[in-house]
Simulated scan of single mutants.
Amino acid sequence: MGPAHHTRDTRRTNTHGGPSMIISAGSSRTTTTSGLGYRPYLVPRMWSWKDTERNTTPGIGLFRGQELKAHLTPDEARALADKLHDMADNLQDTIEQEN
């Protein structure tokens, strides 16, 4: 058996007419205050994963450039979105309390 691979889901549509949504603010052209340079980012795309036995799992691929970093099923994507939303709310509350 060969290594697992993935294929692009040809049903992908972008209803906003622009580029895919960026999960973080993206790779800013400015240097961060810590001097570490560009911020890491992931771009979600509809993506079908094929395992070594050619079984297909439709889902969402998280990419950095052209490199697939993670693949999520719809349930996994929803769980991650919920967790990110909760974390963003908590962070925002912390920032507001500090100011």
Rank of each mutant, 00 (worst) to 15 (best):
Q66G: 13
L80H: 06
R11G: 09
P3K: 12
I22N: 12
S28C: 10
D75N: 02
N90F: 02
K83Y: 03
P74G: 01
K69L: 02
L42Y: 03
Y38V: 08
R45Y: 01
D89C: 13
L42N: 01
R8E: 10
S48K: 07
A25P: 06
N14I: 13
T10N: 11
G59D: 01
L84W: 08
Q92C: 03
S27F: 08
R12G: 11
S24G: 12
T33R: 09
R8T: 14
E67H: 13
T56G: 02
S24H: 15
K83M: 04
D93N: 15
G37V: 07
M1K: 02
I95G: 11
N14K: 15
S28P: 02
T13G: 13
N55V: 05
E67Q: 10
Y41C: 10
G59H: 05
M46H: 03
W47A: 07
L42P: 00
M46V: 05
K69R: 08
R39P: 15
G17V: 14
R11N: 12
T52V: 06
R12P: 02
S48M: 03
W49N: 13
R8I: 14
G2E: 14
G61I: 04
Q92A: 11
E67F: 01
L72Q: 04
Y38D: 04
R39G: 12
L68Y: 01
R12A: 12
P3G: 15
L80S: 04
L62F: 00
I22T: 12
N90R: 15
H6L: 10
G26T: 05
K69S: 09
